[in-house]
């Protein structure tokens, strides 16, 4: 059980959680899975520094703590609250069936492994899994965005996508200034906050949260 094994296992688990989000039929489950994924990711910067043989620095620590506070606690709390007060339909309504979207997701994962192996990288990553996992998290987030109807699921998709960006950012942990990372986190929070307000109002006006009912004003 080396640190390497644990890092790899965590990264694999991140993909599994992504696929789990695609398979889950409950909105709340999706949010909880996202929180779990973010929890795992929050420890990755620290683990990376340990793997490279340094003692964990303040930089990694702050990023970890910020992720923990925002993506594990605050954002899931807001989303779960909306779901609880929404009370209309708690089930995810997919365009594509659950089984089908899991398979499409698996294909995307395989594809990102194939692509990642051919991408030229400036430096040797800590784990060979980082790039493919980041790519597949990005793609699966997009899949959630595209294939789900509810506004909440779209928020989740957006957040997962951002997690993908976060994993990719691990490669550049040293090179990225702390300010930029914190800026991203703040942006994320503001984005989700705004979306939460929008979703709340959609629900209050129309009594549902389906985005596909919002295209009644179409030009045809």
């Amino acid at each position: 059980m080396s640190a390497q094994f644990i890092t790899d296992a965590v990264l694999v688990l991140v993909i599994l959680l992504n696929l789990g989000m695609l398979a889950s039929s409950r909105l709340a489950t999706g949010v909880k899975l996202f929180a779990l994924q973010s929890l795992l990711l929050a420890f990755l910067p620290l683990a990376e520094e340990v793997l490279e043989g340094q003692s964990p620095g303040l930089h990694a620590f702050i990023i970890g703590a910020g992720t923990l506070a925002l993506k594990v606690v605050l954002i899931p709390y807001i989303l779960l609250r909306i779901i609880r007060t929404g009370e209309v339909h708690r089930e995810v309504e997919p365009f594509i069936g659950f089984t089908a979207s899991v398979f499409v997701g698996a294909l995307l994962v395989i594809g990102s492994f194939a692509v990642a192996m051919r991408l030229p990288l400036p430096m040797v990553p800590v784990s060979k899994l980082i790039v493919p996992v980041a790519l597949s998290t990005l793609l699966l987030g997009m899949l959630t965005l595209v294939s789900r109807l509810k506004a909440i699921t779209q928020v989740i998709g957006f957040l997962v996508l951002e997690n993908g960006v976060f994993i990719l950012g691990l490669l550049l942990l040293k090179q990225t200034p702390l300010l930029v990372e914190l800026g991203i986190l703040l942006d994320l929070f503001v984005g989700v906050f705004l979306m939460a307000i929008v979703v709340y109002h959609i629900r209050r006006e129309f009594d549902h949260m389906d985005t596909h009912l919002l295209d009644a004003l179409k030009e045809s």
Binding site: Q4, D8, V102, V109, M117, K128, L129, P132
Partner: peptide
């Protein structure tokens, strides 16, 4: 199937060190 497929991808691409 997806679990096993992921395992196969990891094993066949040699992505794990």
């Amino acid at each position: 199937t997806v679990l096993a497929a992921l395992a196969a991808v990891l094993a066949l691409t040699g992505s794990v060190t």
